[in-house]
Design a protein around this nucleic acid. Structure first.
Length: 627
DNA sequence: AAAAAAC
């Protein structure tokens, strides 16, 4: 799939180049001799590609610093004008003028001038193509009509900060312009989700954003739409020349390779026929292919930190033109030890500083490391907290069963058999099985296969190729059972996962929440089964509390374990110090202004200095806002 | 303690 996409883009580019006589987006063939060619392609923003060349100024110094050609009042990355806010206005104007022109939506882009930027773009591979031919019509039908929008309606949302832009209730109200509107339609998005309703107007207003929301909440679209819109409306920017270095305008960082791939896939749909190019870079895959994609032009770069640092060190990517920075799953990235890389990327390379670029930070929890990151990366930001999808609507049915280690396999088999018997046409519903270790994942996969269950596995010791293959065959139903470590716990959006089994429970309740969040997505119901035994007692209390919060039946024995853990100094890092069950976080700027221990309305008196993951003790009987 | 992530 990827190959054909790359190939056809290469085709489209060389065609476009041949047709216009100016090689605006160098194909791989032209790159070879590019360095010595005097009239080498210079960057042309997407909305002006294939435009008469006279309108594009040439920089005075070929290898000098970024030359910025001003079309209107744009003052450049070092200027004081926040690009985003101007972009917001332009977005709406642009949408109206196009719609007013009566041109059919998606009819080849917004530019009606002959030889518009999008000529040759009709060869862009349709990222929606394989969705229409999805084998399982049932799934499609569900997707079209079965989305339980009511599930989204009562999700609590909280915002704080200076001059918070009003949320938008419909996409029409947001009006991102014809091309994006058409992609919204193609994505079958009917109404914006809560995070989109709030985050998109905030981002379009050019504001920095700190947000607490999960991927299933529509988070990716929430930061992609404003970025794409902002780039489409960007003033004419002349990117510096350099044979082998590229200048993305937006950077999206995410912790795992699969998540980066997923964000890239989604962003490509949102950017379809907008001329905005999205490229992904991550480790474990040959870098040459990614370099080739980058050289074809990149507006939005989605990357994992390690590979990006590599690209920066090789001087193949410059961040000097970055206008939008999005950090996804920021707490996860810190957990994984990425803080040095992230700070290196954001603070020590050539990225425009805080306040000049527009920065959006997404995190599920808010330990002090995240708070520091926020104050270092964000400027006068708006805090947005969106409740968990399903938290208030019980979309995920949670079950906990007491299973000894030695009985886990046969118990899992029972579950799978029962599922097969009650499943649609005897087919195995997609089941995601989480285990603690990579070794455990391998041996369970092997054992399942031996016993006639088509299983595959995903974990960090498998090659990237194997990981992607596993994910593909799981999604397609070829291997309807996926055994996974926590590499798959967060952010991955796999449609139609009917059942999540916590074969081994995680040690952290947040990991549990993320794992079960792989099901019950897009407003559909899901089932989560956990195998509990003596080894998982530390999770008893937070698990019982979480289940109670979400109106799940808590087995009496689990309640006893939970009560017992109270007296043995239970709690610790699994206790939730702030926020509420429906709010994964809080605006700690507000905490700072509260007197310690003085209570604080919705927020308990947990100061900014006591981090969530800090392992502090909670006195027995202490009840936080989570309780 | 294990997991993830650059070569």
């Amino acid at each position: 799939m990827r190959t054909s996409w790359a190939d056809s883009v290469a085709n489209a580019n060389s065609l476009a180049g041949a047709a216009s006589g100016s090689n605006t987006t160098p194909s791989s063939a032209s790159v070879a001799g590019a360095a010595s060619r005097p009239n080498r392609a210079s960057y042309v923003p997407p909305h002006l590609r294939n435009h008469p060349r006279s309108e594009i100024a040439t920089p005075a110094q070929p290898d000098g610093p970024a030359a910025i050609v001003r079309r209107s009042s744009f003052s450049g990355p070092s200027g004081d004008s926040r690009l985003g806010s101007g972009g917001a206005v332009a977005t709406r104007d642009f949408g109206h003028s196009t719609a007013g022109g009566g041109r059919p939506l998606g009819g080849g882009g917004w530019n009606s001038r002959t030889g518009g930027w999008d000529r040759g773009r009709d060869r862009e591979v349709n990222p929606f193509a394989n969705e229409d031919e999805t084998t399982d019509a049932v799934f499609n039908e569900q997707q079209n009509t079965g989305i339980n929008f009511d599930a989204y309606e009562d999700i609590p949302v909280e915002t704080s900060g200076d001059n918070v832009p009003a949320p938008a209730n419909t996409f029409a109200e947001i009006d991102l312009g014809a091309a994006l509107n058409e992609n919204i339609r193609r994505c079958k998005y009917v109404r914006p989700t809560p995070v989109q309703r709030h985050a998109i107007p905030i981002a379009l207003a050019g504001r920095d954003l700190m947000a607490c929301a999960q991927t299933g909440s529509g988070k990716t679209a929430a930061f992609c739409f404003p970025i794409i819109s902002g780039i489409m409306n960007s003033p004419l920017v002349q990117k510096p020349r350099g044979a082998r270095i590229v200048f993305p305008l937006a950077l999206i960082l995410s912790p795992t390779r699969e998540l980066s791939v997923q964000i890239h896939d989604e962003a490509r749909k949102f950017a379809y026929q907008t001329g905005v190019r999205v490229v992904v870079a991550y480790g474990g895959a040959p870098i040459v292919q990614q370099l080739r994609e980058l050289e074809k032009g990149v507006d939005i770069l989605v990357a994992t930190p390690g590979r990006l640092v590599d690209l920066l060190e090789r001087a193949r990517v410059s961040l000097s033109m970055i206008r939008f920075l999005a950090l996804d799953e920021a707490d996860r990235m810190l957990d994984m030890g990425f803080e040095p890389q992230i700070r290196r990327i954001v603070e020590q390379m050539d990225m425009p500083p805080q306040g000049v670029r527009q920065t959006m930070l997404f995190s599920a929890t808010f330990p002090k490391e995240i708070q520091r990151l926020a104050s270092d990366f964000l400027a006068n930001y708006i805090f947005l907290a969106v409740g968990r999808v399903g938290s208030s609507t019980d979309l995920i049915i949670q079950r906990v069963e007491f299973v000894q280690e030695s009985d886990k396999r046969s118990h899992l088999m029972d579950l799978l058999h029962a599922q097969r018997a009650t499943g649609v046409q005897g087919k195995q519903a997609l089941t995601l099985v989480f285990v603690e270790t990579k070794k455990g994942a391998d041996s369970l996969e092997h054992w399942l296969c031996l016993n006639g269950f088509p299983a595959t596995s995903i974990h960090g010791d498998r090659t990237q190729q194997e990981r992607e293959y596993a994910l593909r065959s799981f999604k397609s139903g070829q291997a309807p059972i996926l055994v996974a470590t926590d590499v798959a716990a967060r952010g991955l959006d796999i449609p139609h996962v009917a059942h999540v089994v916590n074969f081994d429970l995680p040690n952290d309740i947040d990991d549990y929440v993320h794992r079960i969040g792989r099901t019950g997505r897009a407003g559909k119901t899901g089932l989560a089964t956990a195998f509990f035994n003596e080894n998982s007692t530390s999770l008893a209390r937070p698990l019982a509390e979480l289940m109670q919060e979400s109106n799940q039946e808590v087995p009496a024995w689990l309640g006893r374990y939970a009560a017992r853990s109270l007296h043995v100094g239970g709690g610790g890092r699994n206790r939730r110090p702030g926020g509420g069950p429906r709010f994964g976080g809080r605006d700690f700027r507000r905490d700072n202004s509260l007197s310690r221990g003085g209570g604080g309305g919705d927020y308990y008196g947990v100061g900014a200095s006591s981090g969530y993951g800090g392992g502090y003790a909670v006195a027995p009987g202490f009840t936080s806002a989570w309780d």
